[in-house]
Write a protein that binds this DNA or RNA. Structure first.
Lengths: 126, 126
DNA sequence: TGTTGACTTAAACCATGGTTTAAGTTGTAT
DNA sequence: ATACAACTTAAACCATGGTTTAAGTCAACA
């Protein structure tokens, strides 16, 4: 079974090493093994977990909620329904945020159009 | 010409009054008038400007950049090109963020599907 | 043998984006 | 006359999400 160093994990997910250490300290990455020298060893499973954390972070889930989710994973099958419920609610929140951003983008497009037209006028006035 | 109080502005844009005051202090809402008693009076133009700030905030533009944009608006027509450039870059950044969120959403959907299937299995095992 | 690079920890530090508090002013309703 | 609601300010306070620093360990290489 392959293991990854923290620098490899950092490179794979484009997350600073300091952030990975911070996540571990916050409980988002439980049970990370160490070698004899105390260095972190990320198994494939730990890498997948880090991938999950990054995915939730990318969709703006707060650290405290990610921690709850990870705690439920560690707790086992009895938390399946809680996890499902959390992911469904989170999905809705993400869709809402995407909708808001998409709507706000229209306001930005209006400005781009307006500025572009005004620039054109100015150049025609030469 | 109609004027709005801070509570009306707050209600219209779903932004707390304290945040509006904070934005003004940060320079995001310049030239807001006051009545004799020192209360803020938002003209239609100021309301539109607040709408712009909210739009940029909704798309995660940092306060410092919003301030730069507003400063350019106040500065006048000579900054047209700078504003156009900023909005075009911002639009790209927003589209990138939406893309990242949309991609990450797939990871969440995978979990929802997996959990749903496992729940089904458990219920079939009755 | 010593020095470099890749790590470790705990603790301090930081930026961002507000919110809350305290004390005061004004206009209106009782 | 008074009390309440709706404001005002400056300053303090706060949460979130990290980043940076300092001091140390270890393996490998020159």
């Amino acid at each position: 079974m392959k293991y990854y160093s923290i620098s490899e994990a950092s490179a794979k997910f484009h997350v600073p090493e300091s952030t990975i250490r911070y996540y571990e300290k916050k409980g988002l990455l439980p049970l990370i093994e160490r070698n004899e020298a105390g260095r972190r060893l990320f198994s494939e499973g730990q890498m997948a977990l880090l991938g999950t954390v990054v995915c939730l972070k990318n969709t703006h889930m707060p650290i405290s909620s990610i921690k709850q989710y990870i705690d439920w994973i560690v707790e086992g099958e009895s938390t399946l329904e809680l996890r499902l419920d959390m992911m469904e609610k989170h999905k809705k929140a993400v869709l809402d945020e995407i909708t808001l951003m998409t709507e706000s983008l229209e306001g930005i497009d209006v400005k781009i159009t307006r500025y572009t037209n005004r620039m054109k006028e100015i150049n025609e006035d030469n």
